[in-house]
Design a protein around this nucleic acid. Structure first.
Lengths: 215, 215, 215, 215
DNA sequence: AATGAATGAGTTTTCATTCAT
DNA sequence: AATGAATGAAAACTCATTCAT
């Protein structure tokens, strides 16, 4: 948590103000949902007047999009930092999943919640398409590299479905994680990795995938 | 022989009206989203006045819940009808997935859309928990039977996460299907089955699962 | 309380049905207030369908008026039965007041509550004027007889104001009684009699009026 | 010298708007009654939009309460200004009553009407209790001082009933005054004073109380 | 640069009342 | 005689958004 900047600091540079607003918006959107969140509450929470919010970040929809964008980027950066392109595919997938669940587990008010809300709201469809596209791209890239390393090639649409399945499964397990606050992010990542890598067939036969490292 | 259908469409019995209303509500909720859907439009679309909607199905939230319940039950019935408990696990999973995607593909305004919306809306959380529980139960049951057939046993929470992953993956691929109207439901089901059954590991190595039948 | 007539008794004579409805209406109006009382609840409580209420007792306003009329008449009859025109004025006033407070105390859901509600509602003004007129007439008659017995005469408008004051004071003390369920009706009547008969001047000097009898 | 009154009546400071709204609300509530009064009409009458009413004075119930409070306070102040604690009790009572009737007569849309409405409305019960308490306190205080001057003492509950009677009688005569627009407030006050001070017993015997002064 | 004042437009919900059977 | 079905009309309340200062 960032220390709250005292309200007495007036005339802050624009960039700082914008971050304050986004912090407040993420908080309120997460807590109340897109519709139930009121611009009033967001402005109040940011310690700023409503017209300023409009002046800096635009209307409600844009504001939400900006939140989603910022949180999504942070998530993507966390994943990117964890994955090293030269490792084998399973290690890459594992590190990516682990980073994903760690991030989601650590920011329970952030991207996962916003994304979940956005998915059901037609007016936010655009933002969702954009963000999901970025996630799909990450996964697709990983798969493509893995295939290339094996000297194989697969139609793009096949890869895309697979990426959808992986992303959807991860989101769902992230939901499970969000609903079980006592659960451990790394354990969830391990389970997810098992399903994703081995598939139900091998799992049912008792096969198991285990992380190589401890951390 | 049949009872005479009245020439004017007025004064229908309650049960009929309720179905008309639910039809309209599912349509409008799907098209507009929960919040943007107005009770006015739903009533109009059902060809009935608003007070009747309130009298028969209650306030907006209850109405949505009723929609979700009806559509979810239909989906579940479609899946249940397709799965035969005595078949091997992969065949069961396949038939279940195929039934799921066929249903979702055939009712693009139905369960999948409502469910997606409900997930982001705090006020609808209760309904989501109930419905998701039913889906998870179906998948968990399937996995349990498969394990039993192999003489193995696994902790309930492990199974649950696996079920979450499968359900989430399916939902996500269903989204993909919803976004690609030209796509074929059975092909999507096959892709999904591959990911779910074989896992990324074997898929990347070129293994492939194929349906046994043609239907 | 009348024993509830079982709903299975259908086709009751009109007069009986009307009393059932009035019973229900008095109850619901008293409990909820004129506006918050819904015709639905009244019909339900009477164990009858709404159209019947309309057919027998008319619209909501008429229904309320009918309630007020019935309860008011009962009150007036109770007072009339208690007052004997040949007694001295103070004895008459005392008996009238005592009957009034006893009645109000015994029917805490009846006349007093309805009347209080009606007073503030412009649409019910007519009914209030009528009922209050009847009360004022009773008091005015009492005062006139008392004056006649003393061989005096006073302008009608003077008497009228006096009657207003007495009626208003009684209503107010009745309110006090309604708000103090543990209070005793006869004690309240005695206090009221003291104020009304002796006036503040004598009361402050310690004079006291006491009922002659014990009953 | 005076601050320039803006040519357009827009953008007034909050305090001013609040008074305008209260003025309009008192008017509309008095004319139509609590329920029949619509927030729309009140806003229109105040020359402002509905949301401002909600923003400044809250929901309908709070708005009504605020009206009652303002008008009640004005009435109480008028009475307090008229009564001088060092005068004899009858003089105090007389001045109080006169101030009361003058005020009520001069503000036929104010306190008396609102109070009458509030009494019958269950949702406004709280406000009524508060306001009536203040009136009762004023009268009780007067009576206590009078008793103390005579060296006597009386139980609080006795005084309370007496106060109820006096307040109720005054309200009723105020009603009479409201229904007789040609009537004179001071004459009504004199009549009321006679009943209250002398009581029916002495009045019937021809005794009469008269104000000492002419004003 | 910053905000208090202001509103248009829309929504859910309720209720008295009446047909058609 | 009795009722389930049906509705017109209105009311309270909220919110995103913008002026004017």
């Amino acid at each position: 948590m960032l220390a709250r900047v005292p309200t007495s600091f007036k005339r802050l540079p624009r960039a700082v103000r914008e971050q304050q607003m986004l912090d407040a918006a993420v908080k309120v959107f997460s807590r109340r949902g897109y519709h139930a969140a009121s611009m009033d509450e967001i402005a109040d929470d940011a310690g700023i007047s409503k017209p300023m919010v409009y002046a800096y970040l635009g209307a409600k929809e844009e504001l939400f999009t900006a939140c989603l964008h910022r949180e999504g980027t942070r998530l993507m950066e966390a994943i990117a930092a964890a994955v090293e392109p030269d490792l084998p595919a399973d290690e890459q997938l594992w590190r990516g999943l682990r980073a994903f669940f760690r991030f989601v587990g650590a920011h329970r008010d952030g991207w996962a919640v916003l994304y979940r809300q956005a998915r059901g709201e037609p007016p936010l469809a655009g933002a969702v398409v954009t963000m999901r596209g970025r996630m799909i791209d990450v996964v697709t890239g990983l798969l493509e590299r893995a295939l290339a390393a094996r000297g194989r090639e697969v139609r793009a649409s096949e890869l895309e479905i697979m990426a959808y399945a992986l992303v959807g499964a991860s989101e769902s397990v992230a939901d499970w994680l969000a609903d079980h606050p006592e659960a451990d992010a790394d354990r969830a990542a391990t389970r997810m990795m098992n399903v994703a890598w081995l598939g139900a067939g091998q799992l049912l036969d008792g096969e198991l995938w285990r992380p190589a490292d401890a951390g």
